[in-house]
């Protein structure tokens, strides 16, 4: 990160599935104003949106920080949810612990984390049962 890093902070409300995605919409607008290319904006906003949905489904909400500098966009998602017992298993496409009602809303197919990895250049997950989850995703510019 260079000295000129722009930082944006968002609180993700865990009580309302309807509002999930608001932070991603904001980030999309901000990046557009900053003149970031449409392809990069799309990758960042999809990855962050999936992360937001995950925080609402599994963790009762959380926080999202987005750092932008000349070389990269970094998204850091932090929650105090139940944590992920087996990260390798959670990364498999199709593996899901989401409740059935989430599936009826169009999510919970075990695509969230794989999508986040697919659309970003680097992704790190720190998580343990009872200790919440922190996910750091980087998209190079």
């Amino acid at each position: 990160m260079s000295e000129e890093t722009l930082c944006f902070h968002f609180d993700v409300d865990g009580d309302d599935f309807t509002s999930a995605g608001q932070a991603s919409v904001q980030v999309k607008k901000l990046l557009r104003e900053l003149g970031v290319s449409p392809e990069v904006i799309r990758r960042v906003s999809i990855a962050m949106y999936e992360g937001e949905i995950n925080m609402v489904i599994h963790a009762g909400g959380g926080k999202a920080d987005v750092l932008v500098d000349e070389t990269s966009i970094v998204i850091i998602l932090t929650d105090e949810g139940p944590g992920i017992p087996n990260i390798k298993q959670a990364m498999q496409e199709g593996y899901s612990t989401a409740p059935d009602n989430v599936r009826s809303l169009g999510f919970g197919a075990g695509m969230g984390l794989p999508n986040m990895k697919r659309y970003t250049d680097h992704m790190e997950i720190e998580s343990a049962p009872g200790k919440g989850t922190t996910i750091k995703m980087t998209v190079e510019l």
């Binding site: 999930a20 991603s24 906003s45 809303l105 169009g106």
Partner: peptide, 15 residues
């Protein structure tokens, strides 16, 4: 055939 706010947000993310 799905009707909830996330349909709109998903479309928005995908341009």
């Amino acid at each position: 055939g799905l009707v909830n706010a996330q349909v709109i947000r998903t479309a928005q993310m995908m341009d």
